[in-house]
Computed example of a mutant assay.
Amino acid sequence: MSTTEASSNYQNLDQMTAQEILVNMNKEDAKVHQAVAKAIPAIEQLVEQTVKRMKNGGRLFYIGAGTSGRLGVLDASEIPPTYGVEGVVIGLIAGGDRAIRKAVEAAEDNETQAWEDLKAYEINANDVLVGIAASGRTPYVLGGLAQAKAHGLLTAGITCNAGSKLSEAADIAIEAVVGPEFVTGSTRMKAGTAQKLVLNMISTACMIRMGKVKGNRMVDMQLTNEKLVDRGAKMIVEATGLSYAQAEALLLREGSVRKAVAHHFEAQK
């Protein structure tokens, strides 16, 4: 039996008080960061290889089913507003976009559909494919990775079971073994948390290495609301010494913190 399907370390959950449930869940969650830390060497390898490909126009694709697929879509969807780049990180879920909100029956069992979904993006050997599956045996993910390898792509797998089929199939195996879930088999819990952390690390590290962060600031973020305009204006004030009103006007005219700061210093020459 896989670790993610093993019986919970806790019995009679239905007889626990709310406090007992929450305290015990928190004890289990504390194990997640330790499991992810052990996977850092593999994550580092993936980041370095992905950045090389991105610099040559390559993209990072995530595929998964259920919770794993939703987490990939979530991570990918946050890259454009955060770092100002479109179509560089792409998340696909078994069953299509409707599966983000509602389970699509048997979608994860289709071994050929992932590659069909990927072909719509003209995926090629310069791209990177990351399969996400807590169990490490999801057919949709395994089939996609097999086709990707056959077409010369770099592949990686994110799983919460050691020695899974996904780890065997992937060029780079990222295993965050968090142990049995508090509710037996409910991998949206610790496994999902571990996957979210790993995805955060992959995409954020790639964007930093691609020059989308200056110092510790998101200088290419999209100005999609007042909060982000305010944040950007304050960054410009800090970098240039302009007044807030001047910085805000410059930001709105140039469209990004990076461009606004560059314009300011160019004008000073």
Rank of each mutant, 00 (worst) to 15 (best):
T4G: 10
N9T: 12
Y10N: 09
L13V: 09
D14R: 07
Q15I: 02
Q19G: 14
Q19A: 15
E20L: 02
I21M: 13
L22T: 13
N24S: 15
N26G: 08
E28M: 10
A30G: 12
A30N: 11
Q34V: 13
A35E: 04
A35P: 00
A39D: 02
I40W: 01
P41R: 07
Q49R: 14
R53L: 08
G58Y: 01
F61T: 10
I63C: 08
G64S: 08
G64M: 05
G66Y: 03
T67Y: 02
T67L: 05
S68H: 07
S68W: 01
G69D: 05
G69Y: 01
L71C: 05
V73G: 10
A76P: 00
E78H: 03
P80Q: 09
P81C: 10
Y83T: 07
G84V: 06
G87E: 09
G96R: 05
A99M: 02
A99G: 11
A99C: 06
R101V: 12
R101I: 06
A103N: 08
A107C: 11
N110A: 14
T112P: 00
Q113E: 14
Q113C: 06
W115V: 09
D117V: 07
K119I: 09
E122W: 01
A125K: 12
D127N: 06
V128Q: 03
L129Y: 01
V130Y: 00
A133T: 09
A134W: 01
A134E: 05
S135C: 11
G136I: 05
R137C: 13
T138I: 08
P139V: 09
Y140G: 11
Y140I: 08
Y140M: 07
V141K: 03
L142W: 01
A150L: 12
A150S: 14
G152D: 08
L154Q: 08
L154P: 04
T155P: 02
A156Y: 00
G157S: 10
C160N: 14
C160Y: 02
G163F: 01
S164V: 10
K165M: 13
L166N: 10
L166K: 06
S167Y: 00
D171N: 13
I174A: 12
A176Q: 04
V178W: 00
V178L: 07
T184K: 03
T184H: 06
T187K: 08
R188V: 05
K190C: 07
A194G: 05
A194F: 00
Q195I: 12
Q195S: 12
V198S: 06
V198C: 03
V198H: 02
N200R: 03
S203P: 02
S203M: 04
A205M: 06
A205V: 03
R209I: 05
K214P: 00
R217Q: 15
R217A: 15
V219I: 14
D220C: 13
M221A: 14
N225F: 03
V229F: 00
V229C: 13
D230R: 11
D230H: 11
R231Q: 05
A233K: 04
M235I: 10
A239F: 04
G241L: 04
A245S: 15
E248I: 07
A249E: 13
L251C: 09
R253Q: 15
R253P: 00
E254P: 05
G255W: 01
A260I: 06
H263Y: 11
F265W: 12
E266F: 04
